[in-house]
Design a protein around this nucleic acid. Structure first.
Lengths: 124, 124
DNA sequence: TACTCTGTTCGAGAAAACTCGTACAACTAC
DNA sequence: GTAGTTGTACGAGTTTTCTCGAACAGAGTA
């Protein structure tokens, strides 16, 4: 599961991005775990929204506009990160999420197309 | 063995197959539910085995060779049928399962390829 | 009749997931 | 400093799922 990425001063992206929060490596991703993470409509919505409406940007929890308590959202985003579906980075006091699209396409080709075609139910 | 039961009633297939047990219609299949059903390694194994090793035959629970109590297997097969992943037919005292491959390919193209590529863990 | 074989249903206990309130931490702005 | 914002951590209650034993049902067979 989530590997502690060692010290607080490690490799950053070329654009000096904040560190990634702990997450499983691409080779460690398990299909069962990914399916379990996607079995919840709210999480499916998160992933689909990140896929369809993210253009080179990461998004905060608030961006999604879910009407749920903060601690519930923390739970769902953490589930997605632990399953390897999203990256998360700490930008000051905001935590921004991004789909691991390349990793998922490499490991599970076709999965994201399934999610793209999904019809979300009426309620959020 | 696979004797067509004594005309218990309604419409049978052209080859006089036993009736299908209740299952969701193709249009009713929900991606969340399918993902939930596939989140369990045992059920993923069942589906994959049906996909790879079924050649025009349906298979009984016993065919899979799982070392689990019968009531546990009933539970997992029922979960798969309720989610719409398999058909089940009653052949006398055996209940035979078959992958809903056409339905799944129509409704969720690419899903079965994901399962085909899955590497089952060491334990059953 | 009795026995076997396949698989179901019921029920209970254990484990996991979901929900959410509360308290807390960190950063920004006044 | 104080207040507001974003989000975490903890814990409890609720719900769901998993697991499995026990009892049962139907078909076939000796």
């Amino acid at each position: 599961m989530a590997m502690p990425n060692s010290t607080s001063s490690r490799t950053k992206g070329p654009a000096e991005l904040p560190d990634l929060l702990p997450e499983p490596a691409t080779e460690e991703l398990k299909l069962e775990t990914v399916f379990a993470a996607l079995a919840d409509p709210l999480r499916l919505t998160i992933v689909r929204k990140l896929m369809l409406e993210s253009e080179a940007y990461d998004h905060t929890c608030g961006w999604f506009g879910f009407d749920r308590p903060k601690s519930s959202l923390t739970h769902h985003f953490r589930t997605l990160r632990d399953a390897g579906l999203i990256h998360q980075r700490q930008y000051g006091l905001e935590r921004r999420s991004r789909l691991r699209a390349e990793d998922l396409n490499m490991r599970f080709p076709g999965l994201l197309e399934l999610i793209r075609a999904w019809q979300p139910p009426s309620n959020v």
